[in-house]
């Protein structure tokens, strides 16, 4: 399998006078699960949106396989993004969106036969509970053809059993794509990530474990 590389550097973002992101560098390759932690309002979502291409920053350089891309979601099978509040349109039918996002027939069947989804296959997205909807949205991105997936709070509002299932699918699909993930349930992020980073004062710090999180002030002693 070909290994793909996503590199992001020189990201600078201000909201008014406040510097949110300054000179960020981040790298994600096929097989990586990069966990990004940080306090509320530190710029995690903005960073993911800039990588995705839906938010313009004063300066940014996003490259896929060493090729500069101004809008990574427009690249063929480039980058997909799970925003905090989801992305599926309420009126769409579950089965139809699965077939739209997931092209591999075996993967379509895998999602359609999932115990959380199968009873809703002919329902509309608006009929799903918050947790099931989020579960479906993550599954669609994980089993799509994209090289990289950006997940912004994929576990919020999801029941513990579904989180365990998502863990399994994340680990499985990370063999085929690169994942950048952020969530306030930091223990899940620490458990699943192959690389861990902390966004603090607009800069990225490499983290090696919980001790570093305490030392950097993200967790209490």
């Amino acid at each position: 399998m070909k290994k793909h590389k996503l590199e992001v550097d020189s990201i600078v973002l201000h909201y008014g006078q406040k510097s949110v992101l300054s000179d960020i560098y981040l790298k994600c390759e096929t097989g990586d699960i990069v966990g990004v932690l940080g306090r509320n309002g530190c710029g995690k979502s903005s960073l993911l949106k800039i990588i995705f291409g839906s938010l313009r920053s004063e300066h940014s350089s996003v490259r896929i396989n060493h090729r500069y891309t101004p809008c990574s979601f427009r690249e063929t099978n480039g980058v997909q993004y799970l925003p905090q509040n989801g992305y599926l349109t309420s009126a769409s039918k579950v089965e139809k969106v699965i077939k739209l996002f997931v092209l591999n027939k075996d993967h379509q069947q895998l999602i359609l036969s999932d115990r959380n989804i199968k009873s809703f296959r002919s329902a509309r997205v608006k009929e799903l509970s918050t947790g099931t909807r989020k579960f479906l949205e993550v599954m669609l991105l994980l089993y799509s053809e994209s090289k990289f997936v950006l997940l912004d709070e994929p576990f919020s509002g999801v029941s513990p059993i579904m989180i365990e299932q998502l863990f399994m699918h994340l680990k499985h699909q990370a063999k085929n794509k690169g994942v950048i993930i952020t969530d306030h349930l930091y223990e899940h992020i620490v458990d699943i990530s192959s690389k861990l980073m902390l966004l603090k004062d607009g800069r990225i710090l490499n983290i090696n474990g919980k001790e570093d999180l305490v030392e950097s002030g993200y967790l209490m002693d």
């Binding site: 839906s54 997909q80 993004y81 992305y87």
Partner: peptide, 13 residues
Amino acid sequence: KQKLYFYHNLGFG
């Protein structure tokens, strides 16, 4: 506005 992500994820700007 949130719907835009649906289209962006399918490659539409």
